[in-house]
Design a protein around this nucleic acid. Structure first.
Lengths: 333, 333
DNA sequence: CTAGGTCCTCGAAGCGCTTCGACGCGAAGG
DNA sequence: CCTTCGCGTCGAAGCGCTTCGAGGACCTAG
């Protein structure tokens, strides 16, 4: 069973190969009757254009590269959500997604770009001083970054507005009348890595607390139960009257509640707790946590949209910040 | 800056285009001096073969399709781990990975296969009665499944030996002298979906317990703290003297320990707890959990290896089961 | 009645690569 | 000495598609 080619379709429909091509691409006007005849042939033969041939002739692969961080550092579920939303959105634009990991480094990008395997690139988890950024600037292929490098000049970046997320938390607690609040953050290494989002959250949190005139403290925190317990205890000890805790560390969310339970503090009667995390984690906790959502799907969607615009050589904004969303549940009052 | 083609390289090295091709593919003998001259030109011009042209001429895209389940049901981190190991392994075989989600269904598979976008397919999370399986049988492209459909005849399947994982748990607890043990499982919906792995674990667990002559109970369990708490309590109530619990539900691991703490049972003094989960979750718990590892990376690696073998038309076993690994930590005695 | 459009369709020239058959050359064999 | 046989290299024929320039058919305007 040889695979069906465009010339099989042409023969079957009694037209020229180029006519079939124009019917399929819509790049020239074709009479309704011819168009229909061609489409019928396409259907009855089960024709699918050969991707390689198409890419070769048109210089468009209709594939975009998605580069995931290899270091499974943080936030795997969010990553997955993001990846699937990228694939889904790309398909809406009739594109496919080539999955790459960061461990091939800049060379990997150069390889797929130079070989015309992909038309554009989507990079996740960009760091402040990312070695891939200079390369992206000189590459002919357009790219979109998730996250912000030190100098975003000439690039296209998308991210959640983490500073705003921090502010949202502080404001919510302040609105409820809390006067002493604290943020339990990501592991220290996350702050040091320079991805920037952890710092930005913290800064937004502290800044909002200050402008509301309330007392705010913060600590990074590892993810094991014991360390979470210690950190919670420390926070409680060093801030007498602490009545609001923000958790910006997905893996620690459950442990924080466990620790408070052991320490005899009721949530939300004695202390209000909120988290910056996906909704399912917040909902699964007991009590269900008031939370600020990281809209991974929106980020993926927007990133693809921007990349597609660049592929059409449309101008796009250099930076796009997505608004976080606060959902009030049972853990704050 | 036009992109450099194979004929640029040929000109630069003073040889024929075909010679360059043979140097690069190694499919014909080329003298050492010519080879070196060509390789030098390749390097100094920065030549990267055009993927589309190569695919068109050779009928090999050097790309494999990886189909992830869209329903983010379970186990996102494991999924990610798996995906990255697939990409990494594929790169070792000089292949790239096209990411697809299951929501395009069988049509998506047909599309990428018929368009020669991919040379082979890797499907994750195959269900007992998977609508994609019949299609795979008639497709010219080879495929490898993660998981087992009802009838694996004529397919190539890889999976963890879940029955063995269940047995490992029961045996470990029996070896420690426990006489009444229980398994706290995945949410009920997972059992009903027919992916099979949850049932197989349970069957292995019960069978091993029976053959060791000890008492075993089991319950599915949702993932919220409250439901986990209820389930643990129920288990404890209905089996007086219960001294060993196996958790086969990643999201519930932390909650089980929290519930036991509240119920006044010490781990491992009063009750031994073990989990079937990734190592990082087990290590992060307090106390660190004895666990059986789902070797996601091995699965990815093996799956790619098998697919590559099929691409070379080598014969491969119909089913490959990967051995689970027991790691003894602090939570059992 | 003819010049000039418009609307559709066609043929052919690539896109950059792989692969097949052919060929020149020096070495080995009769 | 001439034939035979590798070995290393070359040229050319596609792979299946897009796209450009051309041109036939038909219509409108002069």
């Amino acid at each position: 069973m040889r695979t069906v080619t465009i010339s099989d379709v042409a023969k079957h429909a009694g037209v020229a190969v180029s006519t079939v091509s124009y019917v399929l691409s819509g790049k020239r006007a074709i009479s309704a009757t011819t168009r229909q005849r061609v489409l019928d042939s396409v259907r009855s033969l089960g024709y699918h254009p050969n991707a390689g041939a198409r890419a070769l002739a048109s210089k468009r692969a209709k594939v975009i590269g998605l580069v995931l961080p290899l270091r499974a550092g943080l936030n795997l579920p969010v990553l997955m959500q993001f990846a699937t939303s990228v694939v889904t959105t790309a398909r809406q634009y009739d594109h496919d997604v080539l999955l790459m990991t960061a461990d091939e480094g800049p060379d990997g990008l150069r390889r797929v770009a130079a070989s015309a395997l992909v038309d554009g690139l989507l990079l996740m988890d960009v760091e402040i001083h990312d070695p891939r950024v200079p390369l992206l600037r000189e590459l002919a292929e357009p790219s979109v970054l998730i996250g912000f490098p030190a100098d975003p000049e000439g690039l296209t970046c998308v991210d959640l507005d983490f500073a705003h997320a921090g502010k949202l938390c502080a404001d919510h607690l302040a609105d409820l009348g809390h006067r002493r609040i604290a943020l339990l953050g990501a592991p220290r290494v996350v702050y040091e890595r320079g991805t920037g989002f952890a710092e930005r959250t913290l800064a937004g949190f502290l800044e909002a607390a200050r402008s509301r005139g309330i007392d705010a403290n913060a600590r990074p925190c590892e993810e094991s139960f014991d360390e979470v317990y210690e950190t919670v205890k420390l926070l409680l000890d060093e801030c007498p009257g602490l009545s609001g805790i923000v958790v910006h560390n997905e893996a620690a969310v459950g442990h924080v509640l466990g620790a408070l339970r052991i320490l005899g503090r009721r949530v939300p009667e004695d202390v209000s707790v909120m988290a910056i995390c996906p909704d399912d984690i917040a909902e699964r906790a007991s009590p269900a946590l008031t939370s600020v959502l990281i809209p991974a799907e929106d980020v993926g969607h927007q990133a693809v949209r921007l990349l597609m615009a660049k592929l059409e050589s449309q101008a796009v904004p250099q930076s796009t910040l997505l608004e976080p969303r606060l959902t009030i549940r049972e853990s704050t009052r």
